[in-house]
Design a protein around this nucleic acid. Sequence first.
DNA 1: ATGAAAGCGCTAACAG
DNA 2: CTGTTAGCGCTTTCAT
Lengths: 330, 330
Amino acid sequence: MATIIDIARVAGVSKSTVSRAFTNPGAVKPRTLELISNTAQELNYMPNALARAMITKKTETFAFIIHKEQFPVITNPFYGQILESVVEHTGGKGYSLYISSSGSLREYSFNTLLQKQVDGVIFASYTEPKMLQSFLQRHIPVVLVNSRSEDTDVCSVLTDDHGGIGQVVDYLVKKKHRDIGIIEGRFTQFIYNRRHQAFLQALKKYGLESKLCYMAAADATIHDSYNTACDILGGTHPPTALVCTNDTIAVGAIKAAHSLGLKVPGDVAITGYDNSSLCTACEPAITSVDANTRDMGAAAVDFLFRQIEGEEISTVTETVKTRLVERESA
Amino acid sequence: MATIIDIARVAGVSKSTVSRAFTNPGAVKPRTLELISNTAQELNYMPNALARAMITKKTETFAFIIHKEQFPVITNPFYGQILESVVEHTGGKGYSLYISSSGSLREYSFNTLLQKQVDGVIFASYTEPKMLQSFLQRHIPVVLVNSRSEDTDVCSVLTDDHGGIGQVVDYLVKKKHRDIGIIEGRFTQFIYNRRHQAFLQALKKYGLESKLCYMAAADATIHDSYNTACDILGGTHPPTALVCTNDTIAVGAIKAAHSLGLKVPGDVAITGYDNSSLCTACEPAITSVDANTRDMGAAAVDFLFRQIEGEEISTVTETVKTRLVERESA
DNA sequence: ATGAAAGCGCTAACAG
DNA sequence: CTGTTAGCGCTTTCAT
């Protein structure tokens, strides 16, 4: 592969001039510039980003690390959508993106990223403190998505669980539901707690509260959610509405309702969270909270760029507003 | 950040010895090794992969480039699953993975990867020849997933469309269906043709053929598939079975059947392809072809490693066997 | 506006 | 087994 030295030789200039032609064209005489540009083309030249990065200390590369517990990792209806947005926004600025999944067994993977000198890291879902510290300690910009650090000056992008669950409860109450239950996905403790609190608080606003037998945790699988929903809906005095903290869970709940001979939303209203492709695949189509993952991804990338530019970030947590998408299930 | 020079100074050895301690520990006296290892720990040393790569000419990094037309790019039920597997298999070997989406507007994104000296590239879905050539010309190992190149010595990993569609047709014929239609997703021309031919050929095996009015193309959206299915199923003498070339399309078809008052599978059997999460979300659960995306991802990564090791690859196309997953819709 | 020289952090012969 | 030397391809002062 051709290097700037080759170009310099062929064009009869010094390699510094060639370098300058690419990094600071304004400082090179137009005729020289053209000469260099032409020979570069001829030689099919392509700068070596590694060599450049060694000097500039910038690789123009971010990493997206998602915790392995969130299965599936990539096609996860929530994190997958965020990754989608992150890919687009990093690429849009000419940056590259490493994708990697963390997990107990894979400590080396983040060491690798450290060695490869990434300019910033997005952690999705839970982050092991040790891993987080490795980056912070080396002053590599970091942003957490859907989680928060003890370290109060680490940036976080969160979905507005409060608002989202609130919108759902508002909606259900408006539809005259007073016996509202919830199936809560066993996500990270952080998210679990937020949505749980949000639910209780939203009910309280209306002077309502949920019976204990209306509330249960479930793995975010159709199977487990189905069983859980059967328990809740099969009681003697079941709730008339069931809030689910993600769409997969809502699917399981709908199946459970059907198998118990209950009509959705006639006998029991069911709502989801994520507004994923499952919502429209299901019958009835699921009323769900759109977490606005596009904005979440964009916000995460933005946080990284702002840190790179040395900006002192005052508001370190960005809570992205949700939107209730009304469909048929509630 | 500490460098090998720092370690050398503190440990009182030369930097070559330090370097050797990491790259070829066997060639260093155990006591020196330990000394170096300790000081490295103290100084919180971490090798700079960039500097190393400049010399070794190996970045230990692959890229996964998916064509933008395949929307959604990441959460795409088919390519997303493959990416999932690719992430795992590259990570398992200590390699890193760039993820990037290509598309008409984003030519620079692959230039960036070129500059960053990736060791290999996986192209998912369609690949623009120009882009492909840029890599081939620089002798960077390449593998295509779900597409093929004019260049007969470019590795490809394909799903066994023939086998997959064949399994579906076998299954339907065994269930006494003789009037079988198909809704074909407007994927790349390559995949479209393969599945189309596979369908015709599978019918032929049984001396059957599909009426023209039983066959139609559709965008891989529920909406478009719904409309298309309404046309086919709303005819005066509709088919009793409908093969769909992906799950999203099957969902649309099922909805269409329902809206026409047809029972699935009683009045019309419907099958999908991908065995994605939609299959079990849907009611009835979709009978679908599992393309074995895990193996596809693994095969792609394997092709890359084999090329890196300089192996002369004789069988350049790997066709991954499918498996029919029987559920309720057919 | 251009060139010469120094050096980023590391590996890889080659001596010893 | 270890140290010396010479770069990898590039940017960046500092002169000219």
